[in-house]
């Protein structure tokens, strides 16, 4: 090893070098190319025309708007469920009572280990139109009529969000459990001495203590929601869903670029997604003051 690399001053840079190399090749360069391509009409490797903002103007179409709508709604609903519900379940799992927490943790986590394609096979069958299919049969037990789940937008959103909750519930529970275990038990003890009840302890000790984890979970959920493609792909088997009821922004980019071979246009759609995500992250950073750099 050259002497210079051994120096204590240089070593940290050697440690982070793999990231910087990977960042340059697999992030920075493609990002710059995306910007560049979004202003081009690309019909072949050597047939590239600069067309200014034309791709962006073409984005003003109902299919793309529908994809934005689906993506935002999906993100909203997944966060509305996947932040409070796992917190509640984690609080239960973290209680001092013997309730077989180990089994439950494993049970909730196992869906995450399953390919969404495999899960999609089950969900398609369970939510099929037939009155004897699993979900319609259960609905019937409670007096609900058979629903054509994957034929119109609201039921489709229900299925996609259910699939997402099924996949991610366990992961978020693990995050919240980790957060709960960082809260000092003495706080709860002294609150008990002061006569606080369970609800009071939850509101004034657990919630403030869990805030960093909560922010983290919301952040990754925003990411997951906006990057969503696989749930929709697993349920419909194509990037373009019938009547656009389940098509997301990433699905739209994939469809435009790799099915319809409109690379420049797809890149412009990618830029819109990027801008949207950065905006939301910015709002979130302002709102939560997340990811401070102190240790």
């Amino acid at each position: 090893m050259p002497r210079i690399l051994r120096s204590q001053k240089i070593a940290p840079y050697v440690f982070v070098a793999p990231f910087l190399v990977s960042f340059a090749i697999f992030f920075l360069y493609p990002l710059i190319s995306t910007v560049q391509m979004s202003f081009q009409d690309i019909s072949g490797f050597n047939d590239v025309k600069f067309i200014g903002l034309q791709n962006y103007a073409n984005l003003a179409n109902s299919r793309f708007f529908s994809a934005i709508r689906v993506t935002i709604l999906y993100t909203f609903w997944t966060i509305a469920i996947l932040a409070p519900l796992p917190l509640l379940l984690a609080t239960m799992l973290n209680s001092k009572q013997r309730i077989g927490a180990g089994f439950f943790k494993a049970a909730y986590f196992i869906p995450q280990l399953t390919s969404v394609i495999v899960a999609g096979i089950f969900f398609r069958f369970a939510f099929s139109d037939s009155p004897t299919a699993l979900v319609n049969a259960i609905a019937k037990l409670f007096g609900g009529g058979p629903v054509s789940w994957l034929k119109s937008s609201t039921p489709t959103m229900v299925v996609m969000v259910t699939l997402c909750v099924w996949r991610w519930l366990g992961v978020n529970i693990v995050y919240f459990l980790a957060g709960l275990q960082n809260i000092s038990p003495e706080l709860y003890e002294s609150a008990s001495i002061d006569g606080a009840n369970t609800l009071g302890k939850f509101l004034y000790i657990t919630l403030p203590g869990i805030k960093p984890t909560f922010i983290y979970v919301v952040t990754i959920s925003v990411y997951g929601g906006f990057a969503m493609f696989s749930e929709s792909y697993a349920l419909f088997g194509t990037a373009r869903t019938p009547g656009e009821i389940g098509s997301t922004m990433v699905g739209y980019i994939y469809q435009q670029a790799f099915v319809e071979a409109r690379l420049g246009f797809g890149a412009a759609a990618g830029m819109m997604l990027l801008v949207l995500m950065l905006l939301i992250n910015l709002v979130q950073l302002k709102f939560f003051g997340a990811f401070r750099l102190e240790d």
């Binding site: 960042f23 360069y29 990433v250 980019i253 670029a257 990027l274």
Partner: peptide, 23 residues
Amino acid sequence: IFVLVLLVMMVPLEIMMIPLYKE
């Protein structure tokens, strides 16, 4: 560098899959 790590975490690679594919 840590901010760059967070940036990569926050921006889905799917946004850039077209140039990445050509690359």
